[in-house]
């Protein structure tokens, strides 16, 4: 896997931060993807259409970069099928219980200087790194 150029990674991050702020400054909404996706699963008067468009944008924007700007985009998922299902369920339940994910807590919450978000981000980062350490170096070998 080729490394991503430092400036491309930094600029990509900057664009993501700008987009999160833009949604807040214009529409007054937090760009928390787990919350937006979860709310699409239940009817919410007046709050459904924008969320659908936001999610379509997430897919469309990625497609624009991966198919037009810098193709091809290779997605590598090393985990086996059962693990993919289990991890998906855990990510869904965990982000609902924790009230957010990498975007809502990690970007928006940290930028609002929310203590809850800083704590959440430190915890999911640490647990994710510990999980990789265990699966790759202790049991994965």
């Amino acid at each position: 896997m080729e490394p991503v150029n430092f400036w491309v990674a930094l600029l990509g991050g900057g664009l993501l931060g700008f987009s999160a702020w833009l949604l807040f400054a214009l529409n007054g909404r937090i760009a928390g993807i787990s919350g937006i996706a979860a709310a699409l699963l239940t009817p919410a008067r007046g709050e459904w259409a924008w969320r659908l468009l936001y999610v379509l944008g997430l897919a469309g924007g990625a497609a624009l970069f991966g198919y037009v700007v810098d193709p091809p985009k290779v997605i590598t998922v090393d985990a086996g099928w059962p693990l993919v299902v289990i991890a998906g369920l855990i990510v869904g339940v965990g982000t609902r219980l924790g009230g957010g994910c990498t975007s809502g807590h990690g970007i928006c919450g940290m930028s609002r200087l929310s203590i809850r978000s800083v704590v959440a981000t430190l915890i999911f980062m640490a647990v994710a790194a510990a999980t990789v350490f265990v699966t790759r170096h202790l049991i994965g070998g």
Binding site: L83, G94, G98
Partner: peptide, 21 residues
């Protein structure tokens, strides 16, 4: 809830490498 949920999320994230976005 915040601590437990975030820990669960971290576990799932570390197992496959996907977060919601």
């Amino acid at each position: 809830k915040l601590v437990g949920g975030s820990a669960l999320f971290g576990l799932g994230w570390g197992l496959v490498g996907y977060c919601p976005g």
